[in-house]
Amino acid sequence: MAKTHVTMTVNGEPAEGLVEPRTLLIHFIRENLSLTGAHIGCETSHCGACTVDLDGRSVKSCSMFAVQAQGAQITTIEGMAHADGTLHALQEGFRMMHGLQCGFCTPGMIMRAHRLLQENKTPTEDEIRFGIAGNLCRCTGYQNIVKAIQYAADKLNGVPHKEAAE
């Protein structure tokens, strides 16, 4: 099948490759760019394990073609930690509040939470639950994911966070 040349910016670095028109963005990211943080859990856009940040939106990269991301600015989980190696507030929050178990949904969940906190810096618990409803987790029951996001929101807002993980 004829291939198309795509270029985009991924985690601040230029990225390019030759893809079939039907190549899914998630496959381009995982296989061409070898960024395997984003995962595939359903291939029908339900689970959100493949969520990345694209031009300021949360995108399920299993439901978008790589060619549609031509010229896009993409952030994946690999781009979240700070340049000095310290963790982003969300990554820290997920660890501190026990917001993950098997870790398979975590990269997508953190990317979604990252965009949610851009859209709403002080979400309520219900707003967090609604905001991550496109991302499924089979291990945690979400309760500690909500706390992890609250932890990160507090940290990003410079507010002391008191509550410990259950």
């Binding site: 995982r30 960024l35 395997t36 943080g37 984003a38 995962h39 595939i40 994946t76 989980i77 690999e78 979240m80 930690a81 963790l87 990554q91 820290e92 997920f94 660890r95 026990h98 993950l100 870790g103 398979f104 975590t106 990269p107 953190i110």
Partner: peptide, 16 residues
């Protein structure tokens, strides 16, 4: 958890 350091950074190694 020790595991979280890699999982939160997308550095787990799953089969795929």
């Amino acid at each position: 958890r020790v595991e979280d350091v890699r999982f939160t950074q997308g550095k787990g190694t799953y089969v795929d």
